[in-house]
């Protein structure tokens, strides 16, 4: 069963609706003890990275999340929280991935936020099983995670090449919103739920 970290940052309703459509059971994680109840963990998130990190710290779950060995999926700001640092609020984050979250550069002649459906090129990964390469997913963000070949499992382009998805051991993360990305997005959530520990 999927546990959703309930730290007050974001649109959990859309995520739980997607899981319901997929007939995937889920529950909310409010305490460290709750982490034991679930086989897969999702860290959602929208809004400001520094504000989200503060809320996550207030739950007292940070260290327990970092030491998890079961599959974890960060989505959007929930992805960014897994990196080392964000320029949004100049904040230190969980540092599961030694990567930096940066603001898109408007000098690249792009509009910020990056909002809409963009192509994703992925590497062979369980998360993307059954999805066509270059499928478009729904993005909405002003900050991105720098491309790094070690952790990158999917890439997108917006003025610059950035990581649309990253993985390190049991930690997975997506910059786009699978719960808002049509059938392909739902497939990703389904795939995540089947990843073995």
């Amino acid at each position: 069963m999927i546990g959703i970290v309930n730290y007050g940052a974001g649109n959990i309703f859309s995520l739980t609706s997607a899981l319901q459509r997929l007939n995937l059971d889920y529950g909310m994680i409010n305490t460290e003890a709750d982490l034991e109840k679930y086989s897969h963990i999702i860290i959602p998130g929208v809004g400001h990275a520094a504000a989200a990190m503060k809320k996550l710290e207030q739950t007292g779950l940070v260290n327990a999340l970092k030491s998890l060995k079961k599959p974890v999926l960060g989505i959007c700001v929930g992805m960014q929280l897994l990196t080392q640092h964000s320029e949004e609020g100049d904040v230190k984050l969980m540092n599961i991935f030694p990567l930096r979250t940066k603001l898109f550069d408007k000098q690249q002649n792009i509009k910020i936020p990056h909002m809409g459906w963009n192509n994703v090129e992925f590497k062979n990964n369980l998360l993307f099983e059954g999805v066509d390469n270059q499928t478009q997913f729904y993005f909405v963000h002003s900050y991105f995670i720098e491309y790094n070949p070690i952790f990158d499992i999917a890439t997108a382009n917006y003025g610059i090449r950035f990581s649309a998805a990253i993985q390190k051991d049991n930690f997975y993360a997506l910059q786009f919103h699978p719960e808002k990305s049509g059938a392909a997005g739902e497939r990703l959530l389904k795939n995540f739920s089947t990843i073995k520990q």
Binding site: S17, Y138, G185
Partner: peptide, 30 residues
């Protein structure tokens, strides 16, 4: 709508406070 729809949506009309907006966000509006 949010329960069924797997693409993003916006809602407008009659929103004049942070509380109005928060109720819509918590109901699944993007």
């Amino acid at each position: 709508v949010a329960r069924q729809l797997n693409i993003p949506f916006t809602i407008g009309g009659g929103i004049s406070s942070v509380a109005d907006a928060e109720a819509l966000l918590n109901s699944g509006a993007d």
